[in-house]
């Protein structure tokens, strides 16, 4: 028998072992997410994908789909929670979009616009974050890191290396590089690595490729992140 769950009143199929996020993506339903990429093991850290499952809030990217689940993805409360989460991500780092090369292509910014976020609501941390420009081709700007952990997973799961990790707690949390000097130039990183291209924000950038697409003509400038993400992730799933 076909197994189904219900998202916002719509009945959708799932197969055993799928998460709610997997089932939603296959059914062309967008659940906002930042730390999740269907190519990697779920991490469940950003909490943007919070949905209500039979009345309890869960992370859709880690929660298994199960028969009889009644899931709410869109409600005033959930949208408000997601907006607050996004605002926390903004004040925790140093996001000066006008001076960031990723602007318009950035998933964090794209989520902000999708959620109709106009301000950051909370007081800003203005945390001290480091930059690492040591590598000839790759730049790390930790001011924009949201600790999605995708670079860690990409380096381990796909590149079969172990270049990145996250260290520290709270305001001192930061990305660390696996090399004797701690600098990227002394690590195993290669410009072709998945880990270099997975960053949803402007924390990992490729040098000498900036501003090739002018501001105003970028991915999320005219298309909302739900449409962009579904198109991309369905393709990843070979549909």
């Amino acid at each position: 028998m076909r197994k189904t769950i219900t998202i916002d009143g719509q009945e959708i199929p799932y197969t055993e072992g799928q998460t709610i996020m997997d089932a939603a993506i296959s059914a062309d339903i967008y659940i906002p997410h930042l730390c999740h990429d269907p190519d990697y093991e779920p991490h469940g850290s950003c909490k943007l994908c919070t949905v209500s499952v039979n009345g309890r809030n869960c992370s859709a990217c880690t929660f298994p789909a199960m028969e009889g689940q009644e899931i709410i993805n869109h409600s005033v409360d959930l949208e408000q929670d997601r907006k607050r989460i996004t605002q926390m991500l903004f004040v925790e780092g140093n996001h000066f979009c006008p001076s960031c090369e990723k602007t318009g292509n950035c998933q964090l910014q794209g989520i902000g616009c999708y959620l109709n976020m106009h301000d950051n609501h909370f007081p800003h941390f203005f945390a001290n974050r480091e930059m690492d420009a040591s590598h000839p081709d790759i730049l790390i700007d930790q001011n924009r890191c949201i600790f999605c952990n995708l670079y860690v997973r990409a380096s381990q799961e796909k590149d079969r290396k172990n270049v990145f990790a996250i260290s520290g707690r709270g305001i001192n949390k930061h990305l660390i590089v696996n090399s004797i000097s701690g600098q990227l130039k002394d690590s195993d990183i290669d410009i072709a690595d998945h880990a270099v291209h997975i960053c949803p924000t402007g924390a990992i950038l490729i040098k000498r490729t900036g501003y090739q697409v002018p501001i105003g003509q970028r991915t999320y400038d005219h298309t909302k992140i739900d449409a962009v993400t579904l198109a991309k992730e369905n393709k990843q799933h070979g549909r």
Partner: peptide
């Protein structure tokens, strides 16, 4: 609050470090 500077400090706030 009009513009990035009023909203999050903007480029002048880059001196905060």
């Amino acid at each position: 609050a009009v513009g990035a500077c009023a909203i999050n400090g903007g480029l002048p706030a880059m001196r905060n470090h």
